[in-house]
Amino acid sequence: MRPLALLLRASTPADRWLMGGSAVAILTGALFSVTTPGKIAMVSRDNRPILRLALDRDSQHEVAGRLGPVVVQVEGGRVRLLEHRSPRMIGTRVGWIQGAGRAIACVPCGIVIRVEGGERSDGDAGGFDAVSE
């Protein structure tokens, strides 16, 4: 208790506000570095960003892929890709993603959706860091 009493006695109210604010900022940063939900879905075509979607707002967007239009759907903090004319429909089969760092791709369409917004938590890709296939 003595150091705290000393700290309070020797500091002004402005000092205390600044110390408190800084401590809160550091603690918040530490918490978010452990696990951060994705907040933005970045849609790119041929590696160029074309759309930036907030995951906290449900929406649906048609995007021009190389083979024709594809649909990017945001719902309940998740995002998915719906392909119309992709030959293998691999991107559609991935389903919903929401963790930061996760991605869906339709290679023939040239479309990639990537969830951004913070660090990825360990083993986010379906429990694995990667799958060899």
Binding site: S33, V34, D46, V107, G110, V112, E119, R120, D129
Partner: peptide, 21 residues
């Protein structure tokens, strides 16, 4: 963010999705 965690980025390259973590 803290340097403790994983950071990831992806590109379409060589006919596939390339991910670097």
């Amino acid at each position: 963010p803290s340097p403790r965690g994983i950071q990831t980025d992806t590109r379409l390259l060589m006919g596939t999705l390339v991910t670097i973590s």
